[in-house]
Design a protein around this nucleic acid. Structure first.
Length: 903
RNA sequence: GGGCAGUUGGCGCAGCGGUAGCGCGUCCGCCUCACACGCGGAAGGUCACAGGUUCAAAUCCUGUACUGCCCACCA
């Protein structure tokens, strides 16, 4: 005997191994089949699987599995991302914790090797977790953004962009993360509202006058001030433009200038201009040819400032400066102020705008084809409202800062001859005594040689002393090439030929610009084709209150804990039930129990059907001579469910698929069909009923398989002999097809009546506490014979489902004494309950019905009285309203009569 | 400052032109021989607000108010 409750753990382990052994997930690369391809958003090798992976990868898996069952050559391409800064940070923390060492203690070479070792350990661990989740990735060939093929793609892109002069090096004000000690691109900077302060500071006139008062949030940068700017229209200051004021504490004179960038109404109307430490100020400085002074270095320490503050941390210097200004009587005012602080998206420390020479990509030309593709609709977003933000970003695209001053990543493929580039190169000796190139300056004459490998010799002087640029590329540089590089681009490989472009990109909306936009741009530029035509943006998994999950909040749900506790299918299904494109998923353990319960329901329904199969010889084909109402009805319901389930998959609305199949299996199949079938198991019809049960159940399992692969595979294996299926794996079978012959509106209508009457009787039973074992009599009466045709024909159904052992059905039957009454459409229902009736309760029930009937009559009559309604509304609508009115009138009469009887 | 979502029973959501559905929770009754991770039933909503379009609006349009997110150089 099978256990009463489904126990997933053992089953899942067994099946995951079996699938992998059978190489079930390998692409067939069958040229006759339409390819359906998804490249996985490569997870960073930074650690454990989280709910975000669980969500997005489950969506992809459902699509891949479903399309495979649709008969396509489905291929889900696995891989991981080296994850640049994020990974370097993790390894540095690990080093610090375990060995109390910094990366500098190890040296560059040893550090990079450490990260590679980590990758070899962690990479496999990630995919073992993926396998546990049942994700149908072909793990025989796992890509990595840093492996040789992907590195070649990165180089090829760099080379082509260099040749086109899209890549350049320049000195700019860039976003510098002091903690990660690297430059970041604009979109790697996040803006957080921060409760800060606005300080009003007095800059005295050079001539000894009161000078001018400015407002700033960053007093520690006053030492780098190059001017004070006012709006040219500002009457208060017009006379002062051109005069000079003294920077407090620094005692240096700077001019007052006029510039449109200054907002009239803000602060004091006067703005200190610090070109080296603020992006707006930098532009103002450019316009006015102001000198650029840097007072904060790459470590966040003060330089080039009054001696007192030299070497001080920028935060401390702010406090000290304010204190000293106050003491000097130059702090006019201090007010609370909420400003947006730029922070690093990896470590959330405050970003320092920083002057430095970096590598950039000129983006405007590259963006053009992408803009065109989105505008023309060739590129489709799901949901569509991401199109405009996408376009808006592309149309205002900024040059991309691609160099990072970290060690883990694709080294910039540029070399310098120490002889020819002498003055442009700065070297330092590291802690291991190795001489390292630390800084490159094109301004000072560094000459680039673009090459993947170290060149033999300098093309200019023939010298052999060549060194590689110390920086690495932004991790998103290799990600941008992912849909091509996974297939071996730039080589013309068969995979590239067959699988590119891919079918759909499934990823989170939070990386639309960071990643999706860049893939679109590179794909179009290098292949002339979009890397995918559909972009499905999934939401973020949040906690049940809509808060982002984070370790610090302690609201993280670990998917592996949950799969251990409830089974993988339950975790998958709970996510899918809520998978509406682009909507965040509020997630809690309760939503998993709901899905677990559903899995258990499937298991038990199957167990019941298998029990009843004992002694029956399979296979049983789906019967073709369907005459019984229940059979016609369930086929219609099944057919509909299958159709909607497929539509949901094609429209990327997997919540629709999940909900449809859930309600079909539980609400229709289990609650009504199987319940009705129980009675027929005792008759000669048994085999036919079993044939239907087994085939419909099997079909439902197939339809559910992409969503919950384990339990469906497990049960289908037991069912297979009975449906005559030879193929071992559901994934290799075809998805159930909509069958027009099974549509039967009439059967659905008849069942509606039976279910309606049954429910009324059940309600009466429940309200008057009729003991479950007590069979009752029910009287069904109507004015017309026609209204009773269905209940007469299927009285057996009602008797069984309502637990009535006697039904009296007839036209205008008399209402018995001591009776509870109800109405369903045109049918009056009397249930005599001698001794069980609580008259007060019954009156309340009836009065409620009375009010409802009256309200219904009033609204229908009002509508039908409207000339315009009759004139404009479609015929069916008018008919429907008339029918409803008739039914309401009938109900009113019935309820009124019953109330009178009570009195 | 601009843009995009959301606002539906206690909670979480679906519906997106014919006057409301689901899951959880609550309450009542059931260990009914597949399932108490279950079965039957009930209570609970004038679909944020104000206008408009329409015979008809939760559903379309306009505006308002909150909530969340994204973008932007107001120090």
């Amino acid at each position: 005997m099978l256990p009463k409750a489904y126990e997933p753990q053992e089953v899942e382990q067994k099946l995951a191994d079996k699938w992998q052994k059978a190489k079930l997930f390998a692409a067939q690369a069958d040229k006759n089949k339409k390819p359906f391809v998804i490249v996985i958003p490569p997870p960073n090798i930074t650690g454990a699987l989280h709910m975000g992976h669980a969500s997005t990868n489950t969506l992809q898996d459902v699509l891949i599995r479903a399309h495979r069952m649709f008969g396509e050559d489905a291929y889900w391409v696995p891989g991981t991302d080296h994850g640049g800064i994020a990974t370097q940070n993790v390894i540095e923390k690990k080093l610090a914790k375990e060995e109390h060492k910094s990366r500098h203690d190890l040296g560059r070479e040893a550090f990079v090797k450490t990260v590679w070792d980590w990758y070899h350990d962690c990479g496999n661990a990630i995919f073992n977790q993926f396998r546990k989740m049942g994700w149908s990735l072909d793990l025989s060939d796992i890509r990595f953004t840093m492996d040789e093929k992907r590195a070649k793609a990165v180089y090829e892109c760099f080379r082509q962009w260099w040749e086109k002069k899209y890549i350049y090096r320049g000195k700019r004000l860039i976003n510098w993360c002091v903690r990660c000690s690297t430059a970041l691109s604009d979109i790697e900077v996040e803006h957080e509202q921060h409760a800060g302060k606005l300080w009003h500071l007095r800059y005295k006139g050079e001539d000894g006058s009161d000078g001018i008062v400015i407002a700033t949030t960053r007093p520690e940068t006053i030492y780098a001030d190059a001017a004070i700017a006012v709006n040219p229209k500002d009457e208060r200051y017009q006379k002062m433009v051109g005069k000079k004021v003294i920077i407090p504490l620094a005692n240096r004179a700077i001019p007052i200038i006029a510039d449109e960038a200054v907002e009239l109404g803000f602060g004091t109307g006067a703005l200190k201009i610090t070109p080296a430490h603020d992006a707006t100020d930098y532009e103002v400085g450019q316009r006015h040819n102001l000198p650029i002074m840097t007072v904060i270095n790459d470590k966040g320490k003060m330089i080039n400032c009054p001696e007192k503050y030299l070497g001080m941390d920028r935060e401390l210097c702010r406090k000290e400066t304010v204190k000293d200004l106050d003491a000097a009587g130059l702090l006019v005012k201090e007010e609370k102020y909420n400003n947006a602080v730029s922070t690093c998206y990896r470590c959330h420390s405050a970003i320092e705008p920083f002057m430095s020479e970096q590598w950039f990509v000129k983006m405007d030309e590259i963006a053009k084809p992408a803009i065109q593709a989105a505008e023309s609709g060739e590129l489709q977003f799901h949901p569509a409202n991401w199109k405009n933000p996408f376009l808006n970003w592309l149309k205002n695209i900024q040059d991309w800062c691609i160099s990072r001053q970290i060690w883990w990543g694709h080294r910039i493929p540029v070399w310098y001859c120490r002889h020819c580039s002498e003055k442009g190169l700065t070297f330092a000796t590291d802690q291991q005594g190795h001489e390292q190139l630390t800084k490159v300056s094109f301004e000072d004459g560094a000459q680039p040689i673009v090459s993947y490998n170290k060149p033999e010799k300098c093309p200019v002087c023939g010298g052999h002393d060549l060194v590689q640029d110390p920086d690495v590329l932004d991790t998103w540089f290799s990600s941008a090439l992912w849909p091509m590089s996974v297939f071996g681009w730039p080589e013309k490989t068969p995979e590239m030929e067959h699988f590119y472009p891919t079918s759909v990109m499934v990823t989170g909306y939070e990386i639309l610009y960071l990643w999706v936009a860049r893939m679109v741009m590179t794909g179009l530029q290098f292949t002339g084709k979009l890397p995918f035509k559909d972009v499905y943006l999934n939401g973020i998994v949040r906690d049940k209150h809509g808060q982002k999950m984070s370790k610090s909040k302690g609201n993280v749900i670990d998917p592996l804990d949950m799969t251990a506790k409830y089974g993988t299918d339950a975790v998958r299904f709970s996510l899918l039930m809520q998978a509406v494109p682009s909507k965040d998923i509020p997630y809690s353990e309760e939503s998993i129990t709901g899905a677990r319960n559903f899995c258990n329901k499937i298991y038990n329904a199957s167990r019941f059907i298998l029990m009843n199969m004992e002694g029956i010889q399979g296979p049983l084909a789906m019967p073709t001579d369907i005459t019984e109402l229940a059979d016609k009805w369930i086929l219609d319901r099944f057919n509909n469910a299958i159709k909607t389930a497929r539509e949901g998959i094609l429209k990327y609305n997997l919540a629709l698929t999940a909900n449809t199949l859930y309600h079909f299996l539980w609400g229709d199949f289990c609650d009504w069909y199987v319940e009705l079938a129980k009675q027929r198991f005792q008759t000669a019809e048994k085999e036919k009923v079993m044939a239907l049960c087994v085939n419909i159940l099997y079909g439902t399992l197939k339809a559910l398989h992409p969503l919950i692969p384990f339990i469906t595979e497990e049960i289908a294996a037991s069912l297979r002999p009975y449906v005559g299926e030879k193929e071992e794996f559901l994934l290799n079978q075809s998805y159930p097809q909509f069958n027009p012959a099974w549509c039967d509106k009439e059967a659905v209508r008849k069942m509606e009546i039976i279910q309606g009457v049954t429910r009324e009787i059940r309600t009466i039973r429940a309200q008057f506490n009729v003991p479950p074992g007590l069979k009752i009599t029910a009287v069904l009466s109507a004015k017309d014979e026609a209204d009773l045709a269905v209940v007469k024909a299927y009285e057996g159904y009602i008797k069984l489902m309502a637990k009535a052992d006697n039904l009296q059905i007839g036209v205008n039957l008399e209402k018995p004494k001591q009776t509870a009454t109800a109405v369903f459409e045109n049918i009056a229902i009397y249930v005599p309950l001698t001794g069980l009736i609580d008259f007060e309760k019954e009156r309340k029930r009836l009065e409620k019905d009375l009010a409802a009937a009256k309200a219904n009559i009033a609204s229908r009559e009002a509508r039908l009285a409207q000339e315009n309604f009759i004139k404009h509304a479609p015929k069916e609508q008018i008919e429907k309203t008339k029918d409803e009115l008739a039914a309401a009138k009938m109900a009113l009469a019935q309820v009124t009569a019953s109330l009178e009887d009570l009195a």
